[in-house]
Design a protein around this nucleic acid. Structure first.
Length: 116
DNA sequence: ACGTTGACGTCAG
DNA sequence: TCTGACGCCAACG
């Protein structure tokens, strides 16, 4: 019973086109704060059957593509550009400009962690 | 069943 | 700013 895996896929599937979230965010939304790395493990194990999971919308906390390590960097960049996200040749993108949150409550939570 | 890896994030130097 | 250490935990062998 891989609850976490299901939760991760549910969260990622809920991210709208043209918007992005970070691994840490997905972990948080999946109910396991701090398990960002585990999110990567889940996404890494995606199969054909999971074709409806927009994994390209998941980026690292620095607003960069982390999939170059697995050879999917160019693909992810291309998929994101196709959704209107400006990805630089080096694989970085304007995170705060595209970051997505499911609702305002969590947005407030994030503000707590990133005081201006 | 168990040890290792790593699509990450954060903090101390 | 940059680097290294550490915690996290699903996948994989």
């Amino acid at each position: 019973m891989d609850r976490f895996r299901q939760a991760v896929l549910r969260v990622v599937r809920s991210v709208p086109p043209g918007r992005v979230v970070t691994y840490g965010q997905v972990a948080l939304l999946a109910g396991r704060p701090g398990a960002a790395r585990a999110v990567g493990a889940v996404l890494r194990g995606l199969q054909e059957a999971d074709g409806d999971v927009p994994w390209q919308r998941v980026v690292n906390a620095g607003g960069g593509i982390s999939t170059y390590k697995v050879g999917h960097g160019e693909l992810q960049a291309a998929l994101l550009r196709a959704e209107g996200v400006a990805v630089s040749p080096t694989g970085s993108l304007p995170l705060e400009r595209h970051r997505w949150w499911p609702d305002d409550a969590l947005e407030a939570l994030d503000r707590e962690r990133h005081p201006t």
